[in-house]
């Protein structure tokens, strides 16, 4: 958490790292030819304890070992990651600042709804291992057992079920896309808006709302209190026994949920390709290391390697769909 303690922790993990840093740091002049020559900051645009924070803290010791420098986690939460993203771009693009964030939906949301002082092209995704998905679920006590039942009730009367959801979310976009594809009157839907995924899930599990649409990974601890009804993805996820959106409606569009992982300045890729290459290789090797995979999987964190090409493409695709439905993101 703190820079100092973190360094101390690192010291235990990779004893040589600090020594190397101490020897290298006085020679600021030679910093150019020997990246990295000093500790690297990892900006997390959320407060401590959230998914990105946990991901950064769990991944950092292993990445630090490969880069040969300690990593300091800097939490800059607030305003839906807008403050943290802005702060990250204000850091020099010299490879000493990495970003660990929920790129989707927060980057597009910052830009589309918050007049962010940046564009998506200023960020370059190195790898977005965690890809959440919207899940439609109900309480085990609700009596609802299948998505077909939900659809037929909503078709008959769109106001008949209360729907727990977060405003300005990928989940809301997915709900509306589904409503359009199935001919459900989206204006008449009875939306109940919650601040955050946790409260939405609790409301679903406690049968406070009839159904809820929210990121599916967070439902895992509550698995025996809910019935998963529909997953907005084209393949089964996390062992949930439920239908996929593609099975319900072949032509329904959907966006993936949170896409979380590692990013750098786009200008770093252009101006200092060697430094970028070092970071890229380090993150790739770390992500594929079996010890890392075990450690992160145990902590319910993702470490799959998709690489920059897939990650950037998928982020931009999500951003494009969100832009199409911008009106949904500005208050319900």
């Amino acid at each position: 958490m703190t820079s100092k303690l973190n360094r101390r922790t690192m010291l235990k993990l990779s004893g040589g790292g600090i020594a190397a840093a101490a020897m290298a740091s006085p020679s600021i002049l030679s910093a150019q030819d020997a990246y990295p020559s000093r500790p690297i900051n990892v900006v997390v645009p959320f407060d401590t304890g959230g998914y990105n924070d946990r991901l950064a803290r769990a991944f950092a010791p292993f990445l630090s070992e490969r880069l040969g420098q300690p990593l300091n986690i800097i939490n800059r939460g607030g305003a839906g990651a807008l403050l943290g993203h802005t702060y990250f771009l204000q850091q020099p693009d010299d490879g000493y600042a990495l970003l660990c964030t929920s790129a989707a939906p927060y980057l597009p949301l910052n830009i589309l709804t918050q007049d962010a002082p940046f564009t998506i092209d200023q960020f370059h995704m190195v790898n977005l291992p965690s890809r959440d998905y919207t899940m439609l679920a109900t309480s085990t006590e609700s009596g609802i057992t299948s998505i077909d039942e939900v659809i037929s009730r909503l078709k008959e009367d769109a106001n008949s079920l209360s729907i727990g959801i977060q405003p300005a979310s990928a989940d809301l976009v997915n709900l509306m896309l589904m409503a359009d594809a199935l001919g459900i009157d989206r204006e008449a839907l009875r939306l109940v808006t919650f601040d955050g995924g946790g409260p939405t899930r609790n409301a679903a599990a406690g049968n406070v709302v009839d159904i809820a649409l929210v990121g599916g990974q967070g439902f895992l601890p509550l698995a025996d209190k809910i019935v998963p009804l529909l997953i907005f993805d084209d393949a089964p996820r996390d062992g949930w026994n439920s239908k996929l959106i593609t099975e319900v409606s072949a032509d329904a569009q959907f966006v993936s949920g949170s896409q979380r992982g590692w990013a750098v300045h786009s200008s770093l890729v252009e101006n200092s390709p060697e430094i970028y290459q070092t970071i890229l290789t380090a993150i790739e090797e770390t992500s594929k290391d079996p010890a890392v995979i075990t450690a992160l999987t145990n902590a319910q964190l993702a470490t799959d390697w998709f690489g920059p090409e897939v990650s950037n493409k998928s982020l931009r695709a999500t951003a494009a769909v969100m832009e199409q439905h911008i009106s949904l993101l500005q208050g319900t």
Binding site: G78, G80, L82, Q114, T193, G331, T332
Partner: peptide, 19 residues
Amino acid sequence: GMNSAGYIRGTMGIPWLLD
């Protein structure tokens, strides 16, 4: 700031007042 339904009020354009 931003209310539960996603409406943003009274922030005077200051980003941190969103919360």
